[in-house]
């Protein structure tokens, strides 16, 4: 059994501003990240991702709720485990006139890390040849790499990356992906927040989605996607009209399109090919339509009151404070 590395329960944070008044940024949010996971943390802009990470790292004072990092209650006991946690929060800023090397050297000095480690992490993020250049000459992607390098200086057991792919070009994104994978392979637990959903789907094994300050779903990526699988298939035949009639007659839900049909609620596609084949209609294409993280994300965060949203135990829809509707993600499909 794996041990929890990050535990957040009932986190609530409200910001007060003279201009904008009171704003609830995080509203009873829960998060559980276990050791060894590469955990994706998704949410639309302003959903509370960064506030959650800042609260976890002691940069923002929570109104209520409990948080533990590597077993230590935060922010009270955060200093005890800070040396084992590497983090970047949003787009980190550095002194433009300092070189990349000096920037990391100062952090290493402050954190009691051997300065020899600076060259190692610069090489790890692909900045070995640019370390003696001033940060103001760095591109956004290079600054992002420098930020990741600063998080890696401590050889962290837990790495928290807030939007690490910001500003990176496709090659940089791939390198970042490989880096995260290699860290995970070496036993580092990674919590990565991002809005690049395809990237999260590629590198993360678990995911938590937040919307309006509340968790809307969480679990292994495969289970989250499976929960939204309507068992839909794309069907191409020569006579679309006749095929649609035959499938409906067989009790299959069909949606017609210009050059194809989409059938849903069909766990086994053989039922489609057999129904049509028995009537002399030969199927030219039968492709399963699987939900991806983007469609799940949009469904969950774009319309929170959608009846199909499968609320996981421990979370509640943003506008409903009770837990009456809590339904285990793995037990309910979207057609309920």
């Amino acid at each position: 059994m794996t041990s929890p590395v990050i535990e957040i329960e009932g986190l609530r944070k409200t910001f007060h501003s003279l201009r904008r008044g009171r704003r609830v940024a995080v509203d009873g949010f829960d998060l559980l990240v276990e050791a060894g996971q590469v955990h994706g943390f998704l949410g639309p802009n302003g959903s509370g991702k960064t506030t959650t990470l800042r609260a976890l790292l002691g940069l923002v004072r929570a109104d209520s709720g409990s948080m533990r990092v590597l077993g230590a209650t935060t922010p009270e006991r955060l200093p005890e485990v800070a040396g084992r946690v590497g983090a970047i929060v949003e787009s980190p800023q550095f002194y433009g006139n300092f070189t990349g090397y000096r920037t990391l050297r100062l952090l290493a000095l402050a954190g009691g890390v051997p300065v020899t480690r600076v060259d190692e992490v610069l090489a790890q993020v692909g900045l070995a040849d640019r370390g003696d250049e001033r940060v103001k000459g760095y591109s956004l992607g290079m600054k992002q790499r420098l930020a990741v390098a600063s998080a890696l200086l401590k050889r962290p057991e837990l790495l928290i990356l807030d939007e690490p792919a910001n500003g990176l070009d496709p090659a940089g994104i791939r390198e970042m992906r490989d880096l995260v994978r290699s860290l995970a392979a070496n036993g580092v637990t990674v919590l990565v927040s991002s809005h690049i959903l395809a990237e999260i789907q590629l590198i993360c094994d678990h995911v938590t989605i937040i919307s309006r300050g509340r968790r809307v779903t969480a679990g292994p990526v495969t289970e989250v996607l499976a929960g939204f699988d309507d068992h839909e298939h794309l069907v191409r035949v020569d006579d679309l009209g006749r095929a649609e009639e035959l499938l409906r007659a067989a009790g299959i839900t069909v949606t017609g399109h210009d050059d194809h049909l989409v059938v849903s609620g069909v766990p086994d596609p053989v039922a489609v090919s057999r129904t049509l084949g028995e009537q002399g209609l030969w199927v030219r294409e039968l492709t399963p339509l699987r939900p991806d993280l983007e469609s799940v994300f949009l469904e969950l965060t774009g319309g929170s009151a959608h009846p199909h949203i499968p609320w996981q135990v421990g979370s509640a829809p943003p506008d409903q404070p009770t837990t009456d509707q809590q339904i285990d993600l793995g037990m309910r499909g979207v057609d309920a």
Binding site: A82, V89, Q93, L107, K154
Partner: peptide, 18 residues
């Protein structure tokens, strides 16, 4: 002022959360 404005303090607090 520059440290607070540039995020330098935040970087430091991630290392020394005191």
């Amino acid at each position: 002022g520059a440290d607070l404005n540039s995020g330098g303090v935040v970087n430091l607090l991630l290392w020394r959360p005191r």
